[in-house]
């Protein structure tokens, strides 16, 4: 994981769709262009759908890390203001 300079992390395991994506989006808005956010999400619907929504917003997904505890960290680079 040393290849990413993670600027901020957001936990979306405490909310349900569609707030999962909204919470991630708000966290991305706080960042500057090019900075990296780690989004902590649960298995199931969030990990099935949130990466796609992030992509559709135009951000760059770098990695999806499986924490092997039913959660994942999606590493995203912010693109555009």
């Amino acid at each position: 994981m040393a290849d990413f300079q993670i600027k901020d992390t957001v936990d979306i395991t405490d909310v349900v769709c569609p707030v999962t994506f909204v919470k991630a989006k708000v966290a991305l808005e706080e960042l500057e262009e090019g900075e990296i956010l780690s989004i902590h999400m649960a298995d199931g619907e969030p990990v099935q759908n949130v990466p796609r929504s992030i992509k559709e917003e135009g951000h760059q997904i770098l990695k999806l890390l499986d924490n092997s505890d039913g959660t994942y960290d999606l590493i995203v680079r912010k693109v555009g203001e």
């Binding site: 099935q48 990466p51 997904i61 770098l62 990695k63 999806l64």
Partner: peptide, 9 residues
């Protein structure tokens, strides 16, 4: 890039 997103999607 081997990110693994598709596997879950």
């Amino acid at each position: 890039i081997g990110c693994g997103v598709c596997v879950k999607a």
